[in-house]
Amino acid sequence: MELLNIYQNNYLIVFVFLCLGVLLPVVALYLGKLLRPHKPSEAKLTTYESGVEPFHDSRVQFNVRYYIFALMFVIFDVETVFLYPWAVAYEKLGVFALIEMLIFVVMLFIGLVYAWKKKVLRWI
């Protein structure tokens, strides 16, 4: 029971931190509103483009490279899902797990080499 309580209290703390993290900006911005001036004008509300009149819509299509990196991230980051538990339990698992993980990472590495050779990793 005590362990459970500690466990739950720990996450309660995390929750408290979340609340604080959200509250600080909210409160600060609210307080700021009472103090700061508010004189909007047309020019202030335009988008900044180094002083030139803004043209076109700004939400242009991103370069495709960004997506590719996002995909790479998804793949590699999720693979760590397997690496973390493995690393934690490595002591108990022993060589067996090492070899298994070696195969896994070699596959992962082949994936990296693939991306490399296909020039996916090149920026610009």
């Binding site: 793949i75 980051d77 397997f82």
Partner: peptide
């Protein structure tokens, strides 16, 4: 992991 792979391929 599979979901991630699927999403990656889908995207």
């Amino acid at each position: 992991a599979v979901a991630a792979a699927e999403a990656a391929v889908g995207l």
